[in-house]
């Protein structure tokens, strides 16, 4: 058995081109449109003192509209939407804001619809991992979170096809993060 390499902060100086134009739009892949309901997910990332965090990387991973992952570990992956990659990357702006355009995920077996999030930033020695949900439901990952904190993982509907998912790294109403 080999020991996994130690993590380190992404630092403040990753190249500006690290976040490619369009990398936060999961609804289009190779010029073709993914099937399903296109939605917006917007949010703001803050630290303990409430300061907005600029230049922070957010990445997401999710299944397609039918809840199928584009990965051979999913027994149904041969039927995954060929026009949906399921991965995206965004950087926060000077107000701490990020935005993704994506497809409303279907429910994978045994899970409620959800989107996996990762945060990378100067001062984060380890990647922070959390999960966005659209509503409370039977879900083994959600149920692992103390009941009093589950609401913090719920995206708030802002209007048709538009959701808000704010993330607080530390402090009151701190977003639950997973240690795997």
């Amino acid at each position: 058995m080999m020991i996994p390499t130690g993590e380190a902060t992404i630092g403040p100086f990753f190249p500006p081109r690290y976040v490619d134009q369009g990398a936060n739009d999961l609804t289009m892949f190779d010029g073709r449109k993914a099937k399903g309901e296109a939605i917006w997910i917007r949010g703001r990332v803050v630290q303990e003192d409430g300061a907005a965090l600029e230049n922070l990387i957010v990445e997401i991973w999710q299944p397609d509209a039918d809840g199928i992952f584009r990965h051979p570990a999913d027994p149904r992956h041969a039927r995954a939407d060929p026009d949906f990659l399921g991965w995206g990357r965004a950087a926060t702006d000077d107000k701490g804001g990020y935005v993704f355009r994506t497809i409303m995920p279907g429910a994978p077996e045994g899970r409620a619809p959800h989107i996996n999030f990762m945060l990378m930033f100067s001062g984060l020695m380890r990647i922070l991992k959390t999960t966005l949900y659209f509503e409370h439901g039977m879900d083994v990952v959600l149920l692992a979170v103390p009941a009093s904190r589950r609401e913090l993982l719920m995206a708030k509907k802002q209007g048709p096809g538009s959701y808000r998912f704010d993330i607080r790294l530390r402090g009151e109403n701190e977003t639950p993060f997973f240690g795997d």
Binding site: F29, E48, F69, L85, G123, L128, A144, R170, G171
Partner: peptide
């Protein structure tokens, strides 16, 4: 200022965490 104060939540990984983007290079 930036690292969680609350303990990290332990979970048993499911298919969602045990799959991932194999084609990020195409993005």
């Amino acid at each position: 200022l930036r690292n969680p104060r609350q303990p990290l939540v332990k979970r048993s990984p499911t298919l969602s965490e045990l799959s991932g983007p194999l084609e990020a290079a195409r993005r």
